[in-house]
Design a protein around this nucleic acid. Structure first.
Lengths: 237, 237
DNA sequence: AAACAATTTTGCTGTTTTGACAAAATGAGG
DNA sequence: CCTCATTTTGTCAAAACAGCAAAATTGTTT
């Protein structure tokens, strides 16, 4: 292959070499116990009725990120959600109907805040990430990648709070990280660690629903976090 | 948008909504001082003659990874190279000629081993990653992303060795990490840290080119590394 | 009113890791 | 044998980590 070959073909590709671009979203939620993902039943053949990630096709005038945002809004009614690209999946026959390349994004939402209407409308359902049914195509693979990325990201950035309500207890926060990392953490060490980061605001309110003594509620304090600039959020598993 | 709308359009998209898929490679090398990237002069309009990443278009029957491997082989003559996906870039007008979405991969090669012929043939040239010229389209952005990914990855996996010859000195290894992380490291602490990982084989040979005393050569020992399974390679900056 | 129950809250301590720091060893060249 | 540039090696204090248990709170029961 010569320099010319390589270069002259760049803009002369046949339409046939263009492919469909999809975006699939791994929507994570947390319900005080388990890390969950939102799945929908596929409405068409092939694989009709099977569980699938929420997704859609890229439109002409939008970026992948815009498409992911649109899909997220469509299925949950939420916007301004934390999202991160996971990877792009391109196995030639990953979609049996037509060649489609799909970029996966994961998103973190507060499971209590999304639109129940939409979830019902789309036959969507929350599953424990660890006990989800077999998904269509390479979606299981996407979930695995997304989990890895989420785990990696939570060690350097305080994104876990996106999965919790605005006010939460230390115990909930700990359970969240235990769910994400699939590990057990020591209560005392966890609390000490979180406190040393100095990114939470301790409220006067208590959550009285889980114990007689009640446990203090905390808020993630963006300002405090910003003031730690340089000192990054770092948590070891 | 109803469930049906969302789903029935999936396979009825017009050709017009398909797009070209490109792969661009950030090829990293190291020359005992600087982290380098391999760039080529673009051969066609627009932006003809400007510096660009090496890249190409995805073929019908290949995955993105296969395309990246092919491109890498085309420009360097090398195969079996460490590669990692960086991200997929999809700004609508990133390519002024036609909508093209590009997935970036970075690759790590031993700068001494690639084909000089091919580099000459393609008018390719090595630049310090920190002093590279302005690149076409969003390629500067891609390089930045690739650098971040490389930095992140080197903290958890011993991939730096792919940038060095088979035998190297501790000083070279240190300079490499200093280049990647753009930081200064303490000689003693660095060597202690590396030794504590127990993944190198110390050879009897010395490199006599840089000092009278000479410095011992080391080899990365894959077996030793495997035996550390679980204990991951972790380096702090 | 006292005892109880369930959960939250709070240090302490030994060990490991980190990071700052300087002197001795080597061997070619003069 | 001295010089010299570079490599090689070790100590120590501070911080981070990980393992561990008792006290406090408050609604409920007796």
């Amino acid at each position: 292959m010569s320099l010319n070959d390589e270069h002259t073909i760049i803009y002369s590709y046949d339409q046939a070499d263009k492919v469909l671009i999809a975006v699939d979203c791994i929507i994570f939620g947390f319900d005080k116990e388990d890390l969950k993902i939102l799945l929908v039943r596929r409405g068409i053949e092939p694989e009709k009725g099977k569980w699938s990630l929420v997704g859609g096709l890229l439109k002409k005038e939008e970026t992948l990120e815009a498409a992911a945002t649109r899909i997220l809004d469509t299925y949950t009614g939420l916007s301004g959600i934390y999202m991160e690209e996971v990877a792009t999946f391109s196995e030639v026959n990953r979609d049996p109907v037509e060649r489609t390349i799909s970029t996966a994004y994961y998103a973190l939402i507060n499971i209590k805040e999304h639109s129940k209407n939409l979830v019902k409308q789309f036959s969507a359902k929350w599953f424990s990430a660890s006990q989800a049914p077999k998904l269509i195509f390479d979606h299981d693979h996407m979930v695995q990648y997304a989990l890895n990325r989420l785990r990696l990201r939570t060690t350097t950035e305080p994104i876990g709070f996106d999965l919790l309500p605005e006010k939460f207890t230390m115990r909930e926060l700990q359970k969240l990280y235990e769910a994400i990392w699939d590990t057990k953490l020591d209560k005392r060490n966890f609390i000490n660690k979180i406190n040393s980061l100095d990114i939470l605001e301790k409220l006067d309110e208590k959550d009285m629903t889980t114990s007689r003594k009640g446990s203090y509620l905390y808020k993630f304090d963006v300002e405090k976090y910003r003031q730690q600039n340089g000192k990054s959020f770092e948590m070891k598993v």
